[in-house]
Simulated scan of single mutants.
Amino acid sequence: MASLLKCLSLSGRRIVASCVTLRCHSSLTDELIENMDKKTTWDRFYAESSSRTPTFKNFEWFFGFEAVQDFIMPLLQTKSHSDGCLKVVDIGCGTSALGPCIYRHCLLPVWVTCADISPIAVRLMQEHVQVKAIQPHNLSSQLEFVELDCMRLHKYYGSNSVDLIVDKGTTDALLRSKEGKGKAGLVLNQCLKVLRSSGTLLQFSDEDPDARLLWLETEAQEPGVMEADVGVQEVGELRGVCYYCYQVTPRLVVQQ
């Protein structure tokens, strides 16, 4: 399973080559390569992963919180407002420790929602944080795990209500699936709808800027309604792969 997890952190063209040796997990590997946009695929992934280890272990797509905290935490300090906790959503959270780490380290009161389409991943994380009794830096902060299809974010959150959305590999998984590209566009659209005008979407990815920037600039537009500013910073290289942080900020179109 460890080899399988390693191969999943690589880009599409490298997954096939890396999975040649995974004969004992070939069925799950094939399903992941082609169907990373499906709920049933991730239910199976988390069920099999948890059944093979006696104790819970977070699975980090790409890298952990430490690698990207300098992109996330300073951004939160600039988004304070007077109407309660900052709202942060980790979309497609799986069993990552990213959301809980934001909850633990944020100086300001923050409400962190870790959302995933797989109820198995959500249950595993709920059980884990109960056992660990994770404490926030700010006593007013809150942490929750919810089963949620991120193509329907707008049904869970109102417009202009979220300060920060973090996407660590979720859009990559959708874009690399046979039927996922349209879903990736829907997720992006939903993110822009629920973000405050001062809010930000951070996408962490190993996709080259030449491809991702063009996709974001094209998809993050709704003529006459919504536009977005898009930027990119290099996160760094890990295991020979270069990772990037794509920052998307919604901008309402002012009608003349």
Score class of each variant (00 low, 15 high):
V88L: 04
I120T: 15
W61T: 02
K79S: 02
P100I: 06
P74E: 07
V88R: 03
C85W: 07
H105D: 14
L107P: 08
P74K: 08
P100T: 08
G84Y: 00
E60R: 00
S96G: 11
S118N: 06
T95S: 09
P109Y: 14
A115G: 04
L86I: 02
T78E: 00
F63W: 11
D90Q: 09
I91V: 15
A97R: 07
I102Q: 03
F62T: 09
W111L: 00
E66G: 15
C101N: 12
H81S: 10
K57C: 04
L98Q: 08
V68M: 10
L75N: 09
I91G: 06
M73V: 09
F62M: 10
F71Q: 11
F63G: 11
E66Y: 14
C106A: 14
A115V: 04
V89R: 00
D90K: 05
W111D: 00
R104T: 14
L75P: 04
H81D: 07
C93L: 07
M73P: 06
F63V: 08
W61R: 02
E66K: 15
L86K: 02
R104I: 09
A97K: 09
K87I: 01
K57D: 03
V122F: 11
G64K: 00
I117R: 13
C93N: 10
G94L: 13
V112T: 09
L98H: 08
L107S: 15
L98A: 09
S82W: 12
V112H: 05
V122Y: 08
W111R: 01
R123M: 04
C85T: 07
G92L: 12
I102K: 00
P119H: 07
F65D: 02
A97Y: 06
R123T: 09
T113W: 00
I102E: 01
L107Y: 07
I72N: 05
C101S: 15
P119T: 05
F63N: 08
R104M: 15
F65G: 04
L107E: 15
G64H: 02
C106R: 00
I91N: 07
M73F: 08
G84S: 04
S82V: 07
I120L: 13
D116T: 09
Q69D: 12
K79W: 00
P109R: 04
N58P: 08
F62Y: 13
D70V: 08
H81A: 06
P109E: 15
T78V: 13
D70P: 02
P109F: 10
S82L: 14
D116K: 14
V88Q: 04
S118P: 06
R104P: 06
D70F: 09
F71W: 11
C106S: 14
I120G: 13
L75V: 10
A67N: 13
T95C: 11
S82Y: 10
V112C: 12
F59M: 09
A67K: 14
H81I: 01
